[in-house]
């Protein structure tokens, strides 16, 4: 595993006079899943937006695969909290758009049909977003992001608007699809259970973006929720989330 696939080197970012991230340094490995949790306003989404190249750090630098991030890149995909599905595109059009943008429009039919089957959307190809359920919309956005085959996928609260059952279904789907593609995942969540179920490493953000990394053995267990100590781990993580500045700590659940 490439341990410094993603590096944050003394990264600082402020909104006006309010410093959100202060000299953050972080190394993350390739092919792993990272859950980013923390209280509101600690800079989780800012960190994700910096990594995506949507915003630039005031100080320090960020690299992915050795190359500095200065703008959005084709090898980095982003699944937005509000999805950003265009109302004028059917499921098929939305999912085939990234291929057309990459100049691979002729492959669209084959690839899109395949991924829509994997996402159980093959019967909804001609539907517009307003005709889909929340879970179907989420799967469409995921398919649209994955079809461009990003090496790194960033997700901002991907399941926050879903009911419990749909959420569980989507969490399983995301992990299966990413493992198959060996995609690195960093996702922001407020859901402790989701962090433990999906994040092989949990990153807790504290004041000024201070980050604690916790190795999480439960993410690799097929039915983590059936383990007796799963909920104990959830309680432990919640306690750690409530502790203040934890810069530099590395722990295991």
């Amino acid at each position: 595993m490439q341990n410094n696939y993603i590096t944050f080197d003394h990264v600082t970012f402020s909104y006006g006079t309010q410093t959100v991230l202060k000299k953050i340094s972080l190394n993350l490995g390739k092919g792993r899943t990272y859950a980013l949790i923390g209280k509101s306003g600690t800079g989780k989404s800012t960190l994700l937006n910096l990594l995506a190249g949507f915003i630039k750090p005031e100080g320090g630098n960020i690299t992915v695969n050795g190359e500095e991030i200065s703008a959005p890149r084709k090898d980095i995909g982003f699944l937005f909290q509000d999805l950003g599905l265009f109302p004028w595109q059917t499921v098929f059009e939305a999912v085939s758009m990234p291929l057309k943008l990459l100049g691979r429009g002729e492959q669209a039919k084959l690839y899109v049909t395949g991924i829509l089957k994997e996402m159980k959307l093959e019967n909804h190809m001609d539907k517009y977003p307003h005709e889909l359920s929340g879970g179907e919309r989420q799967r469409t956005a995921l398919a649209r992001t994955l079809i461009a085959e990003p090496e790194l996928l960033l997700m901002d609260e991907p399941t926050s608007a879903l009911d419990a059952m749909t959420k569980e279904e989507l969490q399983g789907l995301i992990i299966r699809e990413l493992k198959k593609r060996r995609t690195t995942l960093i996702f922001v969540t407020h859901d402790i259970e989701e962090a433990i179920l999906m994040g092989e490493t949990i990153l807790i953000m504290g004041e000024n973006g201070a980050i604690t990394q916790i190795e999480n053995p439960y993410a690799s267990i097929e039915n983590a929720k059936e383990q007796l100590d799963f909920y104990e781990a959830c309680i432990n993580l919640r306690k750690q989330l409530n502790v203040g500045d934890q810069r530099g700590k590395e722990e295991t659940l």
Binding site: F54, P72, F78, F86
Partner: peptide, 11 residues
């Protein structure tokens, strides 16, 4: 958000 979606695809 739509502009940001397009940015993420480097259009």
């Amino acid at each position: 958000l739509y502009f940001r979606v397009m940015d993420s695809f480097c259009v």
